[in-house]
């Protein structure tokens, strides 16, 4: 069992964070994006269009997938099947009328690029209170999701039921998704509410799932370019490496890919600032 205390003196259990990311991705498919969380009620969650992977024992990203429907792409599951570990996971969260976009990153579950609903408060005081309220709300959703994961992860059915189903999902996609296990403390939502960019009714049947690279997904292999060296504080500069794909050659997805990379640049603003000589 890996337990990394490091210089922070705070055990982080990096394998559990990586498993949490995979579980979120899987559970979003399995539960139709609807979660009934302690103290919050129903929350909608789905994986957005950016995923990054690392290899075991390394922190820097080795592959970044962007584009439409990334989470259901054959490339994404192929990365999992090959043993790559999810490093960053971009989520869309919806609680009551509030929607958030956030990337969960690293062993500390850092929240990166957290975008809030439009603000209504004015003045510094009001703005601060409102933004902290929204931050706490987003953090509470992540907490609720982690708690749900922990309950499944520590349940006896994990190895006999959930893990085999995740393996089948990795191999076969959404067609392999069964019902969620019945676990004490986890209340399932009755009827999935309409959700974000890819409603359940529009899921692609497994038989039609592409076996090769999908035209909608851009793959960035961070190994392709030495310029993807770690940033000054150890953060990878994902945007430094960009591998053209079929989609790029066809002129499809390029703009979206660039948008994603621009966004990634923003996420690493602090790291880049810190690179000041």
């Amino acid at each position: 069992m890996s337990k990394d205390a490091g210089k922070d003196n705070a055990p982080t259990h990096p394998h559990l964070t990586a498993e949490f990311f995979v579980w979120l991705w899987y559970a979003a498919d399995r539960d139709g994006g609807n979660f009934n969380l302690d103290g919050l009620g129903v929350v909608d969650m789905w994986v957005e269009d950016r995923l990054s992977f690392r290899v075991p024992d390394e922190d820097k990203a080795r592959a970044v997938l962007t584009g439409d429907d990334t989470a259901s792409s054959a490339e994404a599951r192929a990365a999992l099947a090959s043993g790559k570990i999810v490093r960053d996971l971009q989520l869309h969260l919806r609680h009551e009328e509030r929607e958030y976009s956030v990337t969960l990153r690293g062993v500390h579950l850092d929240l990166a690029g957290l975008k809030f609903p439009a603000h209504s408060a004015e003045g510094e005081d009001g703005l601060l209170y409102e933004r902290m309220f929204l931050y706490e709300n987003a953090y509470a959703i992540v907490t609720g999701l982690y708690r749900m994961f922990a309950r499944e992860r520590t349940d006896l059915s994990w190895h006999s039921h959930t893990l085999p189903q995740i393996r089948a999902w990795v191999q076969q996609g959404e067609a392999a998704i069964p019902d969620a296990p019945d676990i004490d403390g986890i209340e399932r939502s009755e009827a999935p509410a309409p959700r974000g960019p890819r409603p359940l009714t529009q899921r692609r049947p497994a038989a039609e799932a592409p076996s090769g690279p999908s035209a909608e997904t851009n793959v960035t292999d961070a190994n392709l370019d030495d310029t993807n060296a770690e940033g000054p504080d150890g953060a990878p500069d994902d945007a430094a490496a960009w591998a053209p794909t079929e989609a790029d050659d066809a002129g499809e997805g390029e703009a979206e890919g660039e948008d994603e990379l621009d966004e990634l640049d923003e996420l690493h603003d602090e790291d880049e600032d810190e690179s000041a000589p």
Partner: peptide
């Protein structure tokens, strides 16, 4: 959770 080992998703 502290006692949980590594799950192999492959």
């Amino acid at each position: 959770m502290e006692m949980a080992g590594i799950s192999d998703y492959r």
